[in-house]
Amino acid sequence: MKTIEITVDAKGNATVAIRGFAGPECREASRFLERALGPTATERLTAEYYGQPQQAGRRIEQSS
């Protein structure tokens, strides 16, 4: 299943976890969120990112 999970902490920092997308498709799926939330503080490609589409994942964090 393809999912995008957004978590915002008490300080307003957002963490976005993208699952179910393969490779570049993952970045395309989250591009609108990166634009809306602002500059990416860190990006961590998970092992899932390099796996099969149903297991692919990516995690990005924005700081306020």
Rank of each mutant, 00 (worst) to 15 (best):
G57Y: 01
R19C: 05
R35H: 10
G20L: 04
R19P: 02
E25H: 11
Q55E: 13
V16I: 15
G57K: 00
K11W: 10
T15R: 00
L33V: 09
I4F: 02
T7L: 13
E28I: 08
A17D: 11
K11G: 05
Q52A: 10
L33E: 04
S63M: 11
T7A: 12
T3I: 12
G38Q: 06
G12C: 08
A14L: 02
T15A: 02
S30A: 15
L37R: 00
T46R: 01
E25D: 15
A10Q: 14
E61Y: 07
A10K: 15
G57T: 06
G20M: 05
R27H: 09
Y49D: 01
E25R: 07
E34T: 12
T3H: 10
K11I: 05
E28A: 15
R59Y: 10
C26E: 04
R35T: 14
T40R: 08
P39Q: 11
Q55F: 14
E61R: 08
R58H: 09
A10F: 07
G12K: 10
R35Y: 03
E28V: 10
R27N: 13
Q55L: 14
V8D: 05
G57D: 04
L37W: 01
S63H: 13
E28N: 09
T15S: 02
T3Q: 14
N13R: 12
A29H: 03
S30T: 10
R27I: 11
D9G: 04
I60T: 04
T40Q: 10
A41P: 03
P24R: 12
Y49H: 04
Q62F: 08
L33G: 03
T15W: 00
L33R: 03
F32K: 09
Q52W: 08
G20K: 02
L37I: 07
Q52K: 14
T42P: 04
S63F: 07
Q55A: 13
G12Y: 05
R44G: 07
I6L: 12
G57W: 01
I4M: 06
E61P: 03
R31A: 15
A29C: 07
